[in-house]
Design a binder for these strands. Structure first.
Lengths: 134, 134
DNA sequence: ATGATTGCAAAGTGTTTGCACTAAT
DNA sequence: ATTAGTGCAAACACTTTGCAATCAT
């Protein structure tokens, strides 16, 4: 457990929601200016293997990370602009049990990503549609 | 609707499950040897916007594509080796309704990805654990 | 004729890796 | 002393894009 790894973990704990590797890098850099992006990636990988953090692959071009907290929740992604938000509502751990019976994998988690149009893109789309109708 | 786009769509219909852009490219190339990978990417994007196909972002390094068929289903990914499989069991369109009420997005779809250890990696892991115990 | 689409190659983005050096146990 | 981790830069893998030529309508 090096200084670098500690700081990465600490900063991750302070950040509210799913930062990307380079967002973490920018934060950590303020405390350890000589740290390299490669080190950040390597530690994020290590920490996610040791289950200290969660590696999220929710779509979009970058992976995201989170402290592995029990306040798990789901996400919505806008298929138009790529925006990602949390979604309110209960987390359903039962899902894992349901599908455990139907798979020869050893299920350890699950991710649900809803897709659709965010408020802004929904707006833009309905205006486009009107434009065509005229 | 160009020849290239037609062929991409036809090949995609023939392929059983979630090919990546370059897998599609290889198939299409046998029929249209001069097609470029860029064209494949552009058409996959266009077709997914027009809802002819589904762009899947299930984790792993590449996006995957599928014909937009009603036999939708869920997936499991091995966190160890990256292997992806379909998972048996019913598709739950109600999920979208449930979360629609809790979000200001216009929900149009959802993806559920279970995570865990595939049979092979599960095996390897339990052997590692035994090794340490000795 | 006009606008969309193509092939090609170059550029872009996010991530990983080889290496010599340094820190941790 | 041995192993794991680091900074740096180069390499990678996947995807996107600028451009002039071509195709669809």
């Amino acid at each position: 457990m090096t200084r670098q790894r500690q700081v990465i973990l600490q900063e991750l704990e302070k950040m509210k929601s799913h930062p990307t590797a380079d967002e973490i890098y920018e934060r950590v850099r303020k405390r350890l200016p000589r740290i390299s992006l490669g080190t950040v990636y390597r530690n994020l990988e290590t920490l996610s293997r040791s289950r200290h953090i969660l590696k999220l692959e929710l779509g979009g071009s970058q992976k995201q990370f989170d402290i592995n907290a029990p306040n798990a929740h789901y996400h919505v992604r806008c298929t138009e602009c790529g925006r990602l938000d949390d979604v309110a509502g209960e987390y359903l751990p039962d899902i894992e049990n349901i599908f455990q019976d139907r798979s020869d994998y050893e299920i350890t988690g699950h991710q649900l990503v809803l897709t659709g149009f965010c408020p802004r893109c929904k707006e833009a789309e309905s205006q486009d549609a009107q434009g065509k109708e005229k």
